[in-house]
């Protein structure tokens, strides 16, 4: 996708000025140039003429009739199916909890002791209760925001994408297991067209988090799996989009995992479902 018609720096500045994309200082400079420099005025008019002509051509393109079959296909498109089940759901459904009388009695006694203990602890430190509650509410949001920030940063640095490459899986396992306190495997996601590129360690909401990075195809759409001991508010799987980045998360008793990718990646939930079974 290389442009063949090359443009000078001045042309680019004027072009940005036309769109209101120049900052205040730049805008003043260009305005002065347009007043004082005939050449700059000519460039401005040239760019303006191109813009006006292009708009007319694109407007004409809109007038062409749509294929009726295309409209029908969309109107009759099948409904979404939501059959993918992340581990949290599966676990909840497969658990059958039928305690015996003895178990129920033991559970009652334990609950009583635990409740009493917690009540005593909170009673001795009344000020900390409210703070603790608000922190829990902020935790999951901040953690996911940090995940998105790191994902966006490293995907824009293709030469510095990973700290340890895919050729040293042993080192990655030892390093991230020690760093995060979570035992894991590197999922093979080649069936989803993903090639493992390597890993990183970063902090999200002040907790160490592991980041496994995958490339899709040769040009490299980046999909990442991150894991941390962070506990979100809810154990339910979360699907979200933040800053053009898609997130699918799930939790186990030991860790919380998130698959991260461009918001346009249509199969993040499928990747998450596969990764959940392999990691």
């Amino acid at each position: 996708m290389k442009a063949s018609a090359s443009s000078s720096a001045l042309e680019q500045r004027i072009s940005a000025f036309l769109d209101g994309e120049a900052n205040e200082h730049e805008r003043q400079e260009i305005e002065a140039l347009l007043v004082n420099e005939p050449q700059a005025r000519a460039l401005h008019d040239n760019l303006k003429r191109g813009t006006d002509y292009g708009r007319r051509v694109f407007d004409d393109a809109m007038k062409e009739p749509l294929p009726l079959e295309l409209v029908r296909t969309i109107k009759n498109a099948p409904l979404p199916r939501r059959a993918i089940r992340l581990p949290d759901d599966k676990k909840r459904q497969s658990l059958s909890f039928k305690p015996s009388r003895t178990q129920a009695l033991v559970a009652c006694i334990l609950s009583l002791c635990l409740g009493g203990g917690i009540g005593y602890a909170l009673g001795t430190q009344p000020g900390s209760t409210r703070l603790g509650g608000s922190e829990v509410q902020l935790d999951s949001r901040d953690w996911l925001d940090d995940v998105v920030a790191h994902y966006r940063l490293y995907t824009r640095l293709p030469d510095r994408l990973v700290e340890i490459g895919a050729d040293r899986p042993g080192d990655i396992l030892a390093w991230l297991t020690t760093g995060t306190g979570i035992a894991f495997r590197i999922p093979d996601l080649s069936q989803s067209g993903l090639t493992f590129a390597g890993a990183r360690l970063f902090t999200a909401d002040n907790r160490p988090s592991g980041l496994l990075l995958y490339r899709r195809g040769d040009e490299g759409e980046i999909i990442a799996i991150t894991f941390s001991k962070t506990r979100p508010d809810t154990n339910k799987p979360v699907e979200d989009i933040r800053a053009d980045t898609g997130l699918v998360s799930w939790s186990t008793p030991l860790a919380t995992y998130v698959v991260v990718g461009p918001s346009s990646a249509a199969d993040l939930d499928e990747i998450a479902a596969k990764a959940a079974g392999l990691i």
């Binding site: 442009a3 063949s4 018609a5 443009s7 680019q12 769109d19």
Partner: peptide, 30 residues
Amino acid sequence: YGEAAAILGIPEQAFAERLCSARLRLSEIA
């Protein structure tokens, strides 16, 4: 520019250069 560059998956600077080239090209053929 930022949003459009994100849609096309290219850096904003490259996007601005291409836009300028597109306008010049259209101006040539107008």
